Amino acid sequence: MDFDPSDFPFVTIVKDDGRGSAGGWQQAKANLKFTHRSSRGTTEWYCAITIKMPIRTEFMGKIDPIRAANLSEEITEAVANVMDYNLPPGIFCKDFAGKAKVAFKSTYPLLGASVTNP
């Protein structure tokens, strides 16, 4: 898969007050397109996911919307490349969101990102 940072339009949901070692919260609602080609033809579907992460962290510093989008692209592409595209779209999307959440936690354990499939 080849997602783009623009697929992850991060917006502030809790402003960073600048106090303490971390603060603020942002999220992106993405609708990612998937394509599966098989002997039966081509199937396309979309997975709606929400990615949330802090604006400022103690260990990773400031996470502006561009950096958040780049991190999201990195993680979702890595997960998409190892998914089972034979799953029904609904199950695929739920599994994809769960695996993206795990990938964020294992790749960036101090970030505190979350991924949900609404």
Score class of each variant (00 low, 15 high):
3 F>V: 02
4 D>V: 03
5 P>D: 04
6 S>K: 01
7 D>W: 05
8 F>M: 01
10 F>M: 02
10 F>K: 01
10 F>S: 02
12 T>K: 12
12 T>Q: 14
14 V>M: 05
16 D>S: 05
16 D>K: 04
16 D>L: 04
18 G>E: 12
21 S>K: 08
21 S>H: 06
22 A>V: 14
23 G>A: 12
24 G>M: 10
24 G>Y: 00
25 W>C: 08
26 Q>C: 00
27 Q>F: 02
28 A>V: 11
28 A>I: 09
28 A>S: 12
29 K>E: 08
30 A>I: 14
30 A>W: 01
31 N>G: 15
31 N>Y: 15
31 N>I: 15
33 K>F: 08
34 F>I: 08
34 F>Q: 01
35 T>S: 12
35 T>R: 11
35 T>C: 09
36 H>N: 15
37 R>P: 09
37 R>Q: 14
38 S>C: 06
41 G>A: 14
41 G>P: 14
42 T>C: 05
43 T>Y: 00
44 E>L: 14
47 C>I: 09
49 I>A: 13
51 I>F: 07
52 K>Y: 10
52 K>A: 08
52 K>D: 13
53 M>C: 05
54 P>Q: 08
54 P>Y: 07
55 I>W: 00
55 I>K: 00
57 T>F: 15
58 E>D: 05
59 F>H: 12
59 F>S: 11
59 F>R: 11
60 M>E: 13
60 M>F: 12
61 G>C: 07
63 I>Q: 05
64 D>H: 03
64 D>A: 02
64 D>N: 08
64 D>M: 01
67 R>T: 13
67 R>K: 12
69 A>T: 12
71 L>T: 05
73 E>F: 10
75 I>E: 04
75 I>W: 01
75 I>G: 06
75 I>Y: 00
75 I>M: 12
76 T>W: 04
76 T>N: 04
76 T>E: 05
77 E>K: 07
78 A>G: 05
79 V>K: 01
79 V>D: 01
81 N>F: 07
81 N>M: 07
81 N>D: 06
82 V>D: 08
84 D>W: 14
85 Y>K: 06
87 L>N: 11
88 P>Q: 10
88 P>L: 12
88 P>F: 08
89 P>C: 08
89 P>L: 10
90 G>T: 12
92 F>L: 04
92 F>I: 03
92 F>K: 04
93 C>E: 10
93 C>K: 08
94 K>A: 15
97 A>T: 07
98 G>P: 13
99 K>H: 00
100 A>R: 06
101 K>P: 02
103 A>R: 13
104 F>P: 07
104 F>K: 05
106 S>Q: 15
107 T>E: 09
107 T>S: 10
108 Y>T: 03
110 L>F: 10
111 L>G: 05
112 G>L: 04
113 A>I: 13
114 S>I: 01
114 S>K: 10
116 T>S: 11
118 P>E: 14
118 P>L: 12
118 P>H: 13
118 P>D: 15
118 P>R: 13
